[in-house]
Design a protein around this nucleic acid. Structure first.
Lengths: 170, 170
DNA sequence: TTGGAATGTCAACAACACTGACGTAAGCTG
DNA sequence: CAGCTTACGTCAGTGTTGTTGACATTCCAA
């Protein structure tokens, strides 16, 4: 609603001066884009009686095989009760395997089974396809900016988790 | 995991060649960043017995005052029953006013009350503050790229809704 | 004017998050 | 060894948010 009173003209963003309108557009872009981001996996999951929570679990177990329940908890930012419900169904359905730790027998290390890998592939194929299209459409320079802004938007703790996973995969 | 074998040096990504690893990092960046994106308003809402759905409704009613329920439905992408529950509490609590349409009496036009505006301000102040910090940290070039990628990630219908709102506010 | 489409409301249910409390097994420390 | 802590699982209860189904009102067009 508010006009800052100066320099909202040029489509470019001035370095120091961010209008509320520019910020609001960023907010709405996040909202609408996130919907697109989850749309394709959501469609696949709906047919399988799974939800987004299952997707997240499968994604990060694939990304860091052998991760412990506690570690996954920190990455996902949910309660153990909530994660447990999801994990239980995934294990019961034979998509995830839980192995007692060798060094520390209290820990459970999580792995995808063959079926689990198949689902992960299916889900991430869909999501990567959209990401690839978006990256291509926007161009290589935009991709760098995209990632820099997102990284700056994370809570510090999540930024660390993100960085750790990046090294993991690189 | 995979190196493209070429020109990965300069922060830029090669145009044609997007590795699965690059795409996966984009996916994880979206996931972690969205958590940060919603964290501040969520904290405020928790104290008020409201949720994210209330925030979204208030945001878009503020953005397009007098909008109809149906219009809001399309923007939010939920069922009318789901939106109605949220709207009902907001109206009961005196944050939103619903006026019967003059031209078409089936329609309800939605407006924020004074209290509604106050809440909207509080929520969007928090969210804009984070967005502003992220934009400043990432720099003006990054902001353009950020928006271009997000726009390319939206479903076409949402891209249109986003564009319409942009004109609305400009 | 009558039937269908559009708009919005109420009721019931499912998914998934949360808190709180408790139990068990295993590791650690004095 | 005894006692504390950690890691994990589970039961019970609650709240938000999504869904479908049924229904009332209003508009419009045959």
């Amino acid at each position: 609603m508010r006009d800052t009173g100066m320099g909202a003209g040029l489509g470019g963003e001035s370095l120091l001066f961010l209008t509320d309108e520019q910020l609001r557009q960023g907010i709405e872009a996040m909202f609408f884009a996130y919907r697109g981001f989850t749309a394709d996996p959501d469609r696949i999951l709906a047919d399988l009686a799974y939800g987004r929570a299952h997707h997240r679990a499968v994604h990060f177990i694939n990304r860091a095989p052998g991760t412990t329940v506690n570690n996954l908890l920190n990455i996902l930012g949910v309660t153990k009760q909530s994660l447990n419900r999801v994990l239980r169904t995934l294990i019961a359905d034979g998509l995830v395997e839980s192995r007692v730790g060798q060094h520390d027998k209290r820990e459970r290390h999580l792995f995808l089974t063959e079926d689990g890998h198949a689902l992960e592939q299916k889900l991430s194929d869909a999501q990567r396809a959209r990401m690839r299209t978006a990256f291509r459409e926007a161009g290589p320079d935009a991709v760098g900016g995209f990632r820099r802004v997102l990284e700056a938007m994370m809570d510090p703790e999540m930024r660390r988790a993100y960085a750790r996973l990046k090294e993991n995969g690189a």
